[in-house]
Amino acid sequence: MKMMRKKINKLLLLISFLSLCSYQELTSQTKKLQVINVKNANELRDFFEYTGNDIPIISGHRGQKSIGFAENSIEALEEVLSYTPAIFEVDPRLTKDSVIVLIHDATLERTTNGTGKVSDFTLEELKRLRLKDAEGNITNHQIPTLKEAIEWSRGKTILNLDKKDVPLSMMAQKLEEFDEESVVMVTVHNAAEAVFYYSKNKNRMFSAFIKTEEDFKEFDNSGVPWTQMIAYIGPRIKEEDNRIYNLLNAKGVMCMISAASTYDKLEESAERDKAYIEVLKDGASIIESDYPIEVFKAINSMIPDSSTKAKYYQIGG
């Protein structure tokens, strides 16, 4: 009798497990994402060209920061796309065996259930770890490789790679392997870095640090076409921004303000919403935030009725 009950319990457990798998598979198949479908370098340049009547672009800083989702995880990026189209700033770092993975910190403690330096572990060892969400809860999410993230992103979004510990020469080489369409962006902190990447790939798009007129002149004299840049102009609205906006917009360059270290820190959601709206009213075309879903809800009414960029915004699988 006991043996019979054990068999029945095992059978019920198996049925429950199979039902759950079928439900998750069905959910995955029916879930619709709000995507930015840019297929090649020409479309990428067109998407980021400033026209004065563009759809405001939301950039998820490290993907997003929320309960249940880990920063720099593919799951976090996909969750954002279930609400709004967005691009994503992510953080590449090197493992002990020279694989590029996405993780912000040089150490594991804050964002994973591991300890020590990322560079002291192989990819196989890092894949055994699990990522933490914004409140430190351990999730089921793993540290993704850059290759995995790029493969996932095709037809869905645009990745912007920040600069961490990966040498420029290695990053350029790996992008040639993983990104044949040249639709992955690279953050450059100065014109020299842009010139290096441009010498390796004339189609590469850059998120360039251009916070002052001196920065603008440096990039203007670099030989790297303005058609292949967006400009990060800082973390907050400044009185002198109008001059920078005018210089860059005249070159067809969109400007980005990152709220991650400033307006995202405001305690009240109403305050944050107001700040996000003011960033766009001030002249920015792109707003980067730890809370891209919240930004979408705040600025939704600011999306123009018609734009030549609408063709890139689609409902995807």
Rank of each mutant, 00 (worst) to 15 (best):
M1N: 06
R5H: 11
I8G: 06
K10Q: 09
L12Y: 06
L13W: 10
L18M: 09
S19A: 11
L20S: 05
T30C: 03
V35Q: 01
N37A: 11
N37I: 05
N40H: 00
A41G: 00
F47K: 00
F47L: 12
E49W: 02
E49N: 07
E49R: 08
Y50L: 00
T51I: 09
D54I: 04
I55P: 00
P56R: 02
I57Y: 06
G60D: 05
G60R: 00
G63M: 12
Q64M: 13
S66V: 12
F69R: 00
L77E: 09
E78M: 09
S82R: 08
Y83R: 01
P85D: 06
E89C: 13
P92Q: 02
R93E: 07
I103C: 08
A106P: 14
T107W: 08
E109R: 01
E109T: 02
R110T: 12
N113C: 04
T115Q: 15
S119M: 11
L123W: 11
L123P: 09
E125R: 03
K127E: 07
K132C: 10
I138N: 01
H141R: 02
Q142I: 14
I143N: 00
K147P: 01
K147H: 02
E148Q: 09
R154E: 13
T157F: 00
K163C: 04
D165S: 01
V166Y: 07
M170P: 00
M171Y: 12
E176H: 13
E177Q: 14
E180V: 15
E181F: 04
E181G: 00
V183I: 15
V184S: 03
M185I: 12
M185W: 14
H189S: 14
H189V: 06
N190W: 11
N190H: 13
A191P: 07
F196T: 02
K200L: 05
N201D: 15
S207M: 15
E213C: 12
E214Q: 14
E218F: 14
F219W: 08
S222Y: 08
V224C: 15
P225S: 04
W226H: 03
M229S: 13
Y232C: 07
Y232D: 15
G234H: 07
I237S: 14
E239V: 13
L247W: 11
M254Y: 10
M254L: 12
C255K: 03
A260K: 06
A260N: 11
Y263I: 06
D264N: 09
E268L: 15
E271V: 05
V279D: 07
G283T: 04
I286H: 02
I287G: 01
E288P: 06
E288A: 14
S289Q: 06
Y291M: 12
P292E: 09
I293D: 05
I293Y: 05
V295Q: 08
F296D: 04
N300I: 10
P304V: 04
D305F: 11
D305Q: 15
T308C: 04
I315R: 05
G316Q: 01
G317H: 01
G317L: 06
